[in-house]
Each structure stands twice: as C-alpha cells, then as structure tokens.
Design a protein around this nucleic acid. Structure first.
Lengths: 316, 316
DNA sequence: AAAATATATTAAAACGTTTCGATATAATAT
DNA sequence: ATATTATATCGAAACGTTTTAATATATTTT
C-alpha cells in the first residue's frame, strides 16, 4: 500500500482490489500518530489582506489547495491581526504543532517569520521578502512585468508616463517602480525632474484612495502625464475613478495600467489594462517548494520567480 | 485536563501549572485516534463562487474560522466543480472521512447534499436551501431585507421601482423578489402590468452582465423607472455602469439599491446603497449550528434566520 | 553451484491519547 | 454510626497505523 519494499505488480494489484472491495480507507489519525506528521500545511495572511476587496490572496490559496489535492496534505487557512504579537496571537495550528509547514502570503509580521525560523518550522514566503534576509520564497517577476507594461505604453506613443504607488516596504512595489524607471530610461524618456513631477508615492498600504489622491496631484502639473502606471490594480481603479471625475478621457487623454489582474480589472469600465500575475500558479509553486523544504529542511533557501504577462484592455 | 470526573479546583490548578511548566500540548493525532473524531470541519463552495469577484463566501468562511478559534476544530476549505459528480469529484476530506461535519455555502450541487444526507454526515447549509427539503440551515432574512430596501426607496419619493435579478433557483433571490413585490404592494405602488414592465429576470447566475442588460432593457420603457432594486450588489454594480453609460444621473434620474454589502459597494462611484448581510455572523452561526448537529445528530432540522440592515449611501 | 536479489509472510513494538474499572480516602449527609 | 458523595491515584486495554526484524522461497546473476 505504501509502495515500500519489494512488491510484484501482481500482488500489488491483488491487494488494491481487496482495498477497493472493502472500501478501505486508512485512518488519518492513526497514520499520523505512527508517522509523527500532522498532514497539514498552514496558510497565513494578514487579516486586512483577506477582508479586502481583492481576491488576490484567496486565489493563491486556491492554487495551493488545487496542488494539495494531489497530495495527502490539508491546508489550514488563518489570518493574523495587524498588531500581531507571537506571544499571544500565534495561530492555533502553530501553538499546538498541528502543521508540518507554513506558507505566508503577502506582507506578514516579521516577528512571525522570525518565530518560525527559530522554531525550525519549514516555511515559504509568497509575494513577499524581508530586506536583508534570505528565506525560501516564491516571488512575482515584478521588475520585468513593470518593464513590459511601461514598454507597451511607450510603444503606443505615450511620452510622459507617471507612477502611482504605495509603500516600498512591500518589495513587490519597490521592484515594480524599478521596472518602471528602467523601462523609461531604456527608451530615454526620463528627463531631469521627470520622477519628481510624475511620481506619486505614499507610504501606506495600497488602496483606491492612493490612486485617487495620486491622480489628483499629478493633474496639477502644467504638462499633464499622458499615461499612469499604477503599482497595482486596486490603485489603478482609484486612478480611473479620479480621472473620470476630472472629466478626462481614458485612454485618449490618459492611459492607465495596473498590475495583478484582479477579477475586477476585467469588469471595470473601461476595462483595465494590467500585468497579469498567475495567482493559481503562485500558490501551486509555493506548495511545491514547501514540500521540498519539508522533505529536505537543510537545503539552502531558494527563490522561485514567477513571470507575468501584459494584458492590454481598454484603459491603454 | 478534560474536565471530567471529580477534580478539586486546587488539584486542577496544580495540574495546569505543571502543564504550563512543561509546555505540554496534547498531540492531536493521538487524541483523535482515541476518540475517533477528526477534529475537522469541511467548508464547501462552488468553485465559481470562490473565484468570483466578490468576497461574499470568503467572508462567511472567515466568520467560521473566527468561531472555530474558540474550539478544537480546524476548517478545511475546498471548492467543487460546476459539473460535480459525487462518484468522482468528492472532496478529499469526504472521501477519506477526515471531517466530523460540513458547512455548504451558497448554491451547491444537490447531489452532494443528498450524498451527505445519505452518509449521515452532519451538515449545515448557509444562504441556500433546496425546495421541498428541510435541512439544517442558516439563512439571510432576505424578505425583510428587500422589503426595507424598497421601503427606503419609496420613502425618498420613488414611484416606479424596478427589479433586476438572476435565477430563482437560488432561494435567496426568490425571497428578495418577494420582499420587493410585497413592499410595493403594501404601499399600493404596484399597478397592473407594473411587474411586467419593470422587472427583468434572467435565469442565470447573478453577474454584472445581468445588471447591464437589465438596465438597457428597462430603459426602453416609455416611462422610465425612477429606481432599481437589484437582487445583489454585483448585479447592481452592472446596473450602475449601464446607467452611467446611458448618461443618466444617479441617484437623481434613477436610484439603485443592491443587496449583500460586498466591500466594493462602499468603494464604487457612486457609493452603492445596499442591504448589509452580516457575513461574519453567518459563518459564526453556521459553525455553532453545525456543532449542535454534531453533538446531537438526531435533532430535527432547524433554520436560523440572520437579519439584515439597510445601508443608505450615494446611489439612492 | 553459489551468491545475490526480488518477492512474500508474519509478529511485535511503538506512536500518545481516551476510557474503563479498581481501589482508596476524605468530607458530608442521613 | 452508616451511607453517600467528592476527590484522588493507578493500571490496562484500546484506537489503527508504521516500522523493524525475522524468516522463507523464488528468481536472476555470477
């Protein structure tokens, strides 16, 4: 049954038939007791990330769940509070040692990551990294995604491409800015003072509000930007709203491009051009990497980069 | 430790201290093996419901997860395909008997419900019901929610209130329509032919498209409706889009009201008036009811009704 | 022909709890 | 004084697997 030792195909089949006839299912709890594994994997996200409008992290979860179906693992989803303290707020499955490993998605309390590291609990970060630390992680190729988005804008004739974004404490956003900047540079579209004029950065969690505020400030420039690259779709949606409020035409007056390809992007009016992040794949890769780490805990930390795809819709 | 037998407070405390000193945590798998319980609860939704734009069913899950934290249960979330067949597509945790009970949220394959019923697996339906069958369920008070929404529209002077909705095979939508209709009736605002003229029903899963289509058809009437009550927020968002596309003013020309209060509703432009469904509470109640059912499987099936609250924002 | 390898069978210990029964004593009620 | 109830302690069986070792035979390789 467990594919161990010497078993001839004939015997194996004979046994399988008996298993089927009896409808025998091994009892998980007994098996776990004997193997001293839990058979569970934890999935942790910030509470606000899960409660939010977007389904981004839910989709990553779903990708993991799909992958888990081919395995014996169950996935336990939980959220941690914004003011997380490992002493008191540890998820139950960590407190009671009910998982063999953990996936952490998006921005996540550093104290939690350190706790896991200290406990030698296998874990993988998805779409997040902690500056100065190297952990097992699955990341989006933000740099090239942003680069290609900007490139597309340039190829459709845009000259003054602005950037609107949230906090750089999330490395994804920082990388997207870098892709934006170097994209412009490689086409020589970045004059002195460009970034000063056409960049709106706010040190806060990304939101519609940042998009709205960013646009309203950018639109005070003498020479209006003719395109805005936003650090993600949520921000871009806010940007669209504000541009429409100011009675400018999209994409004629200003083109807008987002990042992520959240479901709303395709349903918005106008439909949002964006950089598609394959969220299910992110989840799947995280699951696979975590399995590798669980099987081989002393492997040096590795990072797997997931590439993106530019989706041109109505807003650009 | 398990609060059984005679234990004096003194002894109990003494033991607790030792437990703390040793940082002893009972091993779940051993405990489960001995008790023949799994300690898990399954949460099942349609795949399309989870992948969708809205976080409706994710919020219900979160409500359950919060409630579960006070218990020893873990919740296993999984989705089932649209063309579900119990023979081949049974969720793993059912196939391998790894749950003590199941919560099913939203529209769900009848064959699955029948399977659970036949297996005598404790289960609870949330926001769904199967006509002619009585199962344990936690439902939204759709009737009164719709009634109060319509009432609010009437009180702000609307006379020709239309309804746009999706398939009645989801009882919630049917009930919302009933609340709408009886709301109008009780204010004598429903003339001959009113429903014929001012009702758009499409026998399909609710979507933005239904909202858009519904509005574009309603706007062909000689006497335009001055308000539209949509069967849910998603539909209402579509309706808003189409109304704006037709250059009508919201709420001046037409007021729009949705149902559910999904997060997007508050961020849309204009902000959507809607009937708030306490999604976390739905999840919590489902969890509590399921626990009751697990503890006492032969209790007659009961339904718990969760009431709603009308939220007036910009669109009405 | 001998050695190595592949296949097969069986028994026993171990995993860490719960449950049950036996035994005992102290405190309280009758 | 006796019976009942509350408290405390202990040992053993049971839950259903995995793991290991021991033993054996058949098949293949040297």
């Amino acid at each position: 049954m467990n594919n161990k030792g010497y078993v001839s195909p004939e015997t194996s089949e004979r046994i399988q038939n008996i298993i089927n006839d009896l409808n025998y299912k091994p009892l998980h709890s007994a098996r776990k007791l004997a193997t001293r594994k839990t058979g569970n994997i934890g999935y942790i996200i910030w509470e606000s990330h899960f409660s939010e409008v977007e389904m981004f992290y839910s989709q990553i979860f779903l990708g993991m769940e799909y992958a888990a179906r081919e395995s014996d693992y169950y996935i336990l989803l939980t959220t941690v509070k914004d003011d997380f303290d490992p002493k008191t707020d540890l998820p139950r499955f960590l407190k009671y040692n009910d998982v063999d490993g953990v996936v952490l998605a998006g921005r996540v309390p550093h104290s939690l990551v350190e706790y896991l590291d200290k406990q030698r609990m296998p874990f993988v970060l998805v779409d997040y990294g902690i500056p100065g630390k190297i952990y097992n992680s699955v990341l989006i190729d933000n740099y090239n995604g942003a680069f290609s988005a900007v490139e597309s804008l340039i190829q459709s004739g845009r000259k003054r491409i602005a950037f609107v974004g949230g906090t750089f404490s999330h490395p994804s956003i920082k990388e997207r800015f870098r892709g934006y900047k170097e994209g412009l540079e490689s086409y020589n579209l970045i004059s002195d003072g460009h970034l000063k004029k056409y960049t709106y950065l706010e040190d806060a969690e990304t939101s519609r509000e940042i998009g709205e505020k960013g646009v309203s400030i950018l639109l005070t420039e003498k020479l209006l930007p003719d395109a805005i690259f936003c650090c993600n779709d949520t921000t871009a949606l806010g940007a669209l709203t504000e541009i429409q409020r100011k009675k400018l035409k999209i994409p004629q007056d200003i083109a807008v491009v987002g990042f992520d390809d959240i479901p709303t992007a395709a349903f918005n009016l106008p439909k949002l051009s964006t950089v598609r992040v394959p969220k299910l794949l992110l989840g799947k890769e995280a699951f696979k990497l975590l399995n590798d780490v669980i099987d081989n805990p002393r492997l040096p930390a590795q990072t797997r980069l997931i590439s993106t795809e530019f989706i041109k819709r109505e807003s650009s």
